[in-house]
Design a protein around this nucleic acid. Sequence first.
DNA 1: TATTATTTTTAGGTAAGACTAAATTATTTT
DNA 2: AAAATAATTTAGTCTTACCTAAAAATAATA
Lengths: 227, 227
Amino acid sequence: MDILSRNIQDYLKHIYALTEDGGAASTTDLAARLGVAPASVTGMIQRLANAAPPLVEYRKHQGVRLTPHGEKAALEVIRHHRLLETYLVTMLGYSWDTVHEEACRLEHVISEEFESKIAAVLGHPTHDPHGEPIPNEALEMPADQALPLSALRPPQKALILRVRTENPALLRHLEQLGLVPGTKIQVVGYSSFDQNLTIHITQARNLQHVIGFSISSQIYVALQSFP
Amino acid sequence: MDILSRNIQDYLKHIYALTEDGGAASTTDLAARLGVAPASVTGMIQRLANAAPPLVEYRKHQGVRLTPHGEKAALEVIRHHRLLETYLVTMLGYSWDTVHEEACRLEHVISEEFESKIAAVLGHPTHDPHGEPIPNEALEMPADQALPLSALRPPQKALILRVRTENPALLRHLEQLGLVPGTKIQVVGYSSFDQNLTIHITQARNLQHVIGFSISSQIYVALQSFP
DNA sequence: TATTATTTTTAGGTAAGACTAAATTATTTT
DNA sequence: AAAATAATTTAGTCTTACCTAAAAATAATA
Ligand SMILES: [Mn+2]
Ligand SMILES: [Mn+2]
Ligand SMILES: [Mn+2]
Ligand SMILES: [Mn+2]
């Protein structure tokens, strides 16, 4: 298993995302993310587990997690992806809702030379246009203590760090609302019935929005010191 | 045959190159260029000929040529390739002997948006770093009346237009000799025994090189008006 | 705990695109 | 024209990566 096919690279990338916070990645979740039948995932998972060296650790019906080898390979793809997104937005004027698709194709074919050249041109960025951390050249992921906006309650204040979606329509929506990385906000309302949050955008005088859980759980923030 | 696989795209590109000056492309030549067994080429050619619409015209043992459909597809890939090469050299500092490989992978995955963005950034270039013409947006190939340097005899003068090789070692060699697009030269010697040409570089006082046919036939020039 | 419902795996198939070895066809040479 | 050589095609396999349908295992519910 010397050179990894682009399909395998995508599998590893998605397994990484699904296992980032602890648990194992289930067959169904992977199938949904990859747009593929669950049976196909089972087949691929078995190949990844039987590879030499193994890329995932797998116990039937228990889901998968990455081995150190698999994680390294995943981080390499993720670095490519996020550097590319940054490059496309910064240097070629892509909008943040369209970069993902392009980067998802390019990530598998660029050389290490290309990677290091765009990293240099960009000044070795640590975060992509959505605020996602970019692993450094040694593939270490910059740590941050982000938590989902959905976990906040009034009157907590926070700084938006990243937006964890690739959905172009949602990204355009968030941009319209001003809920982008770098924005300072305050939670000013919460409804326990539907989990809606009312968000006030600190910089703007009377701008506030009511957002549902499916949005607030995708936005990651850093809590601001609070008197 | 709606979307063409990258393998098919490469086949079409190489068929274009082999048929550019008239004739048909033979199975063996294609196999050599693609780094694949002749039998594999036969298999692929049959698929290309039976596609709807057909991409090549094929008669057993007679070689192939592109249909108008196939040619359009080939030119699309060639435009991608040459724009990419130009971008990599101009914007990312690649050297002209290393761009080919990178462009050959990227050409199959960039979107039309990417194509038009880099074309715009570069100011819609008409030639790539090797002097090869870049088809315009309508996929029309800019015409030029280039002829191989190997066809010249003393004391003809010429301007180097392009270098038709992807061989990194040869490209580095030519750069060293100063035989790059834009250079003005004069043929000052010819040996009918080995077809060697002695080339004088006009700009430089006493710089001249003896080059063999396998090099001079790869360099394309425009004849300079001659008294 | 027994029965459903959900999730996951197995079994059997397909399509691309490559390979090798053997068979054919074309082209040269004698 | 026959024989030898070179080029091309056919036949039979292989790998990757997907699919559907059926079987099996796990989780949820009565
Ligand atoms: Mn991808
Ligand atoms: Mn991103
Ligand atoms: Mn290519
Ligand atoms: Mn070129």
